[in-house]
Every structure is written in C-alpha cells, then in structure tokens.
Design a protein around this nucleic acid. Structure first.
Lengths: 240, 240
DNA sequence: ACCTGAACACCGTTCAAGT
DNA sequence: ACCTGAACACCGTTCAAGT
C-alpha cells in the first residue's frame, strides 16, 4: 500500500519522505496504539531500519509533533449556520468526535501545542467567527485557546482507561456501576455526600458530561457579549 | 531518610510496604520526572531488585494508580469563606497550584480517574459545598467532575513543553514571542485573523489563560442557579 | 545524500529458584 | 511470605561505515 505520490515539494524521491514517515506513523498508531508506536515498528512499517529514521527526523518527539498535526489533517470546521453559540458548540463536538475517532489521538495531542499547518487553518477559521460574533480580539484569542484545551483535556479522560486497573476487562458501563456500588458502601457519617450522590456521580455518560460542560462554558462566554453591544467592540479586556 | 513508621494496618514489617513503595515512587518522580520513573529505578531507590516490586503491585499501571492518589495526599480544600463562587475559584486555583508544584503531576494524573482515599476526601468536601450553594444533586456531581477535568487538562498543557521541539532550551517567554513573530509572518490573505491576533494569541501568560477560562466557567455555572431560587432545589435536570 | 550494522544503555514483566 | 537471578522481548539513540 501507500504508492508514493510524488508530491509537489521535492525534486526527486529519496525513497523516504517526511510525509511518508508521518503517514506510516499514523497507520502504526491506529493498529498498535500509542504504546506500540515505536521507532523500530515505524521503521519496519516502512521496510527500513530504525536508525534510518534519524536522518529525516531529529528524534521521536519531533515525529510526534508532526503526527499531531497530521491527526488534524481531515478535521472539518462546522457549517456557518446558526448563531455563534451553535457554531462553537458544533466546533467542540466535532473536535471531540474527531479525536475519539482516531486511536489514542488525545494521548498524542495532549499537551503538545506545536501548531502545524492543519491546526492553523482551523484556528484561522474559528478566530474569524469569534470576531464576527462580536468578541474582542483579546477574548477571541483566549476563547480559541480555551476551547482547544477543554476538548483535548476532556477526551484524554474519556479515551484513557476509566479505572486504570480495569484497563482491560470490563466495559465502561460495568466499571461505572461498580464504582457506584463502592461509593454507596462508604461510611455514611464521614462521606454523606458521596453516598447520597453515588448515582449522580457514576451514572452520566461521557456524552452527557461533555455536553453539560460545554453548555456551561458557552453560557459563560455569552456573558462576555451581554455588556456593551455598542461601538467599543474590539476594545475588550486586554489579558496581559 | 524515610524511617519506616510502622503504620497501623500490618502485623509485622515485611521490609517493603505498599506505602513505602509509593513514597519512593514519589521521590523518583520528583527527581527524575515521569520519563525517568521506571520499575528498575524505583527498585534501586528501595535497595531492592525490580522483580521484587511485582510481589506488592500487579504492574506499573497499578503503581501509577497508587501514585496518583498519593499526589493528592497533601492537597488542601480552601477555607469556607466567601460565596460559592469564591470557594470554587479557590478550589480550582489551589488544585492547579498543587499540580504545578509536583513535577510532572499532571502527566501522571492525566486520564486516570481511579479515585483513591485522598481524592475521595476532597470530592466529599466539594460536593457538600456545591449542594449548600443550591446546586441540584445531579448538577453538583457534574460540576465536580467538570472542574477536575478542567484543571487537569489545563495543567497538562501548562506542564508539557510549549512547542515540543523546544522541550529543552529556550524559556516559555521566548518561545511565545517567537511563535508570535511566526504568526505575524504568515500570508495575510489566507490567514488574516492569525496575523491580526498574533499578539493576542501568544501574549497572555498561562496564569491569565487559566484565570480567564475559570471565570467563564464560573459564569456558566452561575446561570444554573439564577432560575428557581425556590423550593424545587434538589430536582434539577437529571443528566441521564 | 541517504541508509545500514552494531552497539550502548536502557525498559516492563515473568518465573523458577532461593530463604 | 517475600525477595533474587536470569532471562525474554523489547525500547530510543548514536555513529562509524557503507553505497
């Protein structure tokens, strides 16, 4: 597979492109997970020895940087329909779905802000919508960061093993109800709230948790627009 | 250091307690970072061979579960003064400071929800305050989860290398201004917003970003309380 | 310019064997 | 019951050497 499309940036085909490297990394990630993504396996996927990779890439960190951007390659911005709130909601829900769709994506992306071209494209688009909605420049920049961190952090928890010792074995639902039982059995005099809210704490799906958090966040953002609808538009707080 | 206080749960001292194991792991984490925390180094810290550890702990995952809870051992709930908003703000800021204070804490804790006794203590306390503030049981449970995920996700980004290839080398400030320059140099016709907001995107400190996000979140939570201040208190939405 | 071979200094985990 | 020795199957990275 992966017939080498000769691309538009190189004069000859040296057998191994950075592009090919990253694509192969993507395949290994999908099939082996982040724990199985090693330089040696990646080399094998490319029919080459591990030491060869270091000609194209400084080290594994750099490879992961490239991979991070590649993970965003086919992410799509939502349609420009509805108000800003609807659009931001769609942005976050799509981003979450996108990350959930690629194996261990959140673990790769996790605190890796190195912005590649694919991410820049999405940032550009989102910033435009935020400014059109009436957010100040400073607020738009903050919101853009905040939403990314929010979704990434959330999916990280969602993709990781719920209770770590149960990494393999039981499904999420069983683990959750088991956790609920455990909470209910706590000593009621020292943990009255945990006992009382055992069901509320362990019942909601990740879907529901995400949705709840997102709506709260959007509520919070809307208060930024409520004051001044006047002409002092792009002079919001300056966050220095 | 670490004279073996004999504790209250074991009849004799077998030389190696789970407690001692975790304490040693904490020390190795502090001195070597999460990348340097290996079973072999941990064993060495305890004056023992790596294979011995597997008598006390199923595998490294379990060790990290225990470590995760131990990282919360000396976390403190904020004083009960001010309104709910002030208290929740303090909760989040303290949690952030706490994680920032322990090397690579966020990376260990990251999607590891296995709740140990220390975390349970904090949850119990926070849930109590949320209910007293007037949040429904379902909302209180959601908020408790949400705030934890929020702070953890945020600190993860903050503790990781900003731009990954610059893991070592330049300080955060230089990296940020360099990123700003890079944004400003983008083609203005395809990235007008990134060019215009380059300063707003790269200027704010992590402190400011966290603060902004937190206030937005708190704004969003307060809208949950604005409707019904009446008697239908603990009958909020049910999030199933 | 690009790739290999061989080595270095590591990993997590298992399991028979010791005491 | 608790710990060790030795092994297995891996890692990331370097660097002289090949072509």
């Amino acid at each position: 597979m992966a017939a080498e499309s000769k691309g538009d940036d190189g004069p000859q085909q040296p057998g191994l492109t950075r592009r090919a490297l990253v694509q192969a990394a993507l395949r290994v990630l999908e099939s082996e997970g982040v724990g199985g993504l090693s330089m040696r396996k990646l080399a094998a996927e490319l029919g080459v020895k591990a030491s060869s990779l270091y000609w194209h890439v400084r080290n594994k960190e750099e490879l992961l940087d490239l991979l991070t951007d590649e993970l965003m390659a086919d992410a799509q911005a939502p349609p420009r329909e509805g108000d800003w709130r609807q659009q931001l909601r769609e942005y976050c829900m799509r981003y979450r779905r996108h990350l959930l769709g690629k194996r261990d994506a959140a673990k790769v992306v996790a605190g890796r802000l190195a912005p590649g071209p694919h991410l820049l494209r999405l940032m550009e688009d989102q910033l435009g919508r935020l400014r059109e909605a009436g957010f100040s420049d400073a607020d738009a920049a903050m919101i853009n960061y905040l939403l990314g961190a929010f979704v990434q952090g959330f999916v990280l928890q969602e993709q990781g093993p719920l209770s770590a010792s149960e990494a393999m074995g039981a499904g999420r639902r069983e683990v959750a109800t088991a956790a609920g039982e455990q909470l209910r059995r706590l000593p009621q005099d020292t943990f009255p709230n945990l006992v009382a809210l055992a069901g509320d704490l362990t019942g909601p799906s990740m879907e529901a948790r995400f949705s709840f958090a997102l709506e709260r966040l959007l509520d919070g953002l809307s208060t930024l627009l409520e004051q001044d609808g006047s002409d002092a538009r792009n002079e919001g707080t300056s966050h220095e």
